[in-house]
Design a binder for these strands. Structure first.
Lengths: 114, 114
DNA sequence: TTATTATATAAGTGAATCGTTATATAAATT
DNA sequence: AATTTATATAACGATTCACTTATATAATAA
């Protein structure tokens, strides 16, 4: 099986970053659906700056990328990242978090960014 | 492929624990060789309490286990851990750290615990 | 039994981390 | 042009974390 070896210092940095429940859940959600900031704000019931700061860290390491769509900024997993294989491997061990998006849809909050 | 799903809160805890260069390197080394505390002290060139504290955290989560052998306590990976498959998966992405043990042997320091 | 060696624990300190509030920027709407 | 909506950044406080020094425990050797 192909495995890109990752320098242990960089690997520790990535794992530390993913070692936060909010960020780990974000990444798991992004694994199946792109999302904008406002959706995460609803999902995690925390402040918008807190969400932006988490996304910034993920973006700084190249784990996620952003695309502007009008006034919204859509985040997605960066599949070109050298860390993507590791991230994918980790995510396989986690249960789907899609129910969080489904709750949003029930409340009609997901549509806001589409 | 069998994957044991890990609750996302526990997964974040595990990843945070592995998100430290010293602990991650320890676990990678333990993946191929059992080690005692004094070896880690030499390898990481840090204090004995610092090493003991790292091992304590890994032990508390069940990632490593210990066996006393005379005055030494030998640490090894706990392959029965529910987190072992995840840990294994992560370690596959890391380059071998055996060279650190080999350096010890050159200095005749590894033999001390055998 | 005393000293030595290996390891663990406790307490304290400085740095890193995460959330908050306040403010800035940028696009869309009026 | 002014307002609103979405997002980012800055500054600060509380908590967490990893290390240090000092001390405790436990096995071995003298």
């Amino acid at each position: 099986m192909h495995k890109t070896l990752i320098d242990i210092t960089n690997a520790a940095t990535i794992l530390k970053l993913l070692g936060d429940k909010t960020r780990l859940t974000m990444v798991k959600i992004l694994d199946s659906h792109d999302c904008c900031v406002c959706e995460f704000v609803e999902i995690f019931k925390t402040s918008q700056p807190a969400i932006s700061q988490h996304l910034r860290k993920l973006k700084d390491l190249g784990i996620v990328k952003e695309t502007r769509r009008g006034q919204w900024i859509i985040y997605s997993l960066n599949k070109e990242s050298e860390y993507y294989p590791l991230v994918q491997n980790i995510l396989q061990h986690l249960p789907s978090q899609d129910f969080k998006l489904q709750e949003l849809e029930k409340q009609g909050l997901r549509i806001s960014c589409e």
